[in-house]
């Protein structure tokens, strides 16, 4: 039983990270209908920015995380401008290919700049806390709580602010949003900024638990895709639910089935779901 609860906590930690990454991906998909393949690599760069601001510039963990979020937010906006904006009228496979190009570029850049070594981020909050007989590191609690706070903040932002409403309106109907005077271009930029911010913060949160390396984004982006396909592309509740489900499933699978094959679980789930329901679980209408 203890092992089960322990794995549940681990799963929720992992799920929190997946949620934050998948949320950004689903936001971008909702606005631009771009499957942004490079999103996971923004996550990776976010991890490096946090790492270096801590080790090279001696900033504390929280400042580094926020700095990474802001830096990557800017990178995200630039990416929208340089890569996706010019292709907004192109066929969808061209956008996909451009996203793959951006992904290759970022990973190779990270390899050249920082080498292919696995690095570990200095763990500031690695004390073990006992909660009802379960041993949890502080960092895991931070991850779970911060993710919830961030998601609440995102929800408030989308529902209560004008910019947030414009984002939702654009996601619902791009032409319609343009007609009522929403600047769809800036909405796209803001969305990319927010999504990249979330990815970088997720990386900063995950950094002390997992390792930092140039291809760390490749696996997480595919899992994020699995999540948003399962949760319905463009759906925010779907991304959150899917993120937690995947995190817990993987954690349980690693404990009770096999550690070697834990990464395969996510993809098998996706293949199964799409085999039965080709439009995803919670798809709203046909694309």
């Amino acid at each position: 039983m203890d092992l089960f609860v322990q794995q549940l906590v681990n799963g929720l930690t992992l799920g929190s990270i997946y949620c934050l990454v998948a949320l950004g991906l689903t936001l971008i998909y909702g606005i631009m209908e771009v499957p942004n393949f490079a999103h996971g690599h923004l996550y990776m760069i976010g991890a490096y920015v946090t790492l270096f601001s801590m080790t090279l510039y001696g900033l504390n963990y929280w400042l580094s995380s926020i700095l990474a979020g802001i830096v990557l937010g800017i990178v995200g906006v630039l990416m929208e401008r340089i890569v996706f904006h010019p292709l907004r009228h192109a066929p969808s496979s061209n956008k996909f290919i451009a996203a793959i190009g951006a992904m290759m570029f970022l990973e190779a850049l990270a390899r050249v700049l920082w080498g292919s070594d696995f690095r570990s981020m200095p763990a500031v909050y690695d004390q073990v806390v006992l909660i009802g007989g379960i041993r949890v590191t502080e960092q895991r609690i931070i991850v779970i709580v911060s993710a919830i706070l961030l998601m609440l903040a995102l929800n408030l932002f989308l529902k209560k602010t004008i910019i947030g409403s414009s984002i939702e309106a654009t996601a619902q109907n791009r032409e319609g949003a343009g007609q009522v005077g929403i600047d769809v271009n800036s909405v796209a930029m803001i969305t990319f900024g927010i999504a990249s911010f979330l990815a970088a913060v997720a990386a900063a949160l995950a950094g002390p638990i997992f390792l930092v390396f140039p291809s760390m984004g490749a696996l997480i982006i595919m899992k994020a895709f699995v999540i948003i396909v399962v949760g319905g592309m463009g759906s925010i509740p779907g991304a959150i639910l899917g993120g937690y489900i995947l995190g817990v499933t993987e954690s349980m699978g690693a404990t009770y089935v096999s550690t070697d094959y834990k990464d395969i679980v996510a993809f098998l789930v996706l293949i199964l779901i799409l085999a039965v329901k080709p439009t995803g679980l919670f798809a709203e209408g046909k694309r």
């Binding site: 890569v83 451009a98 793959i100 951006a102 570029f105 190779a108």
Partner: peptide, 8 residues
């Protein structure tokens, strides 16, 4: 790096 940029 070149290939990525080239694809785009």
């Amino acid at each position: 790096i070149l290939f990525g940029a080239l694809l785009v």
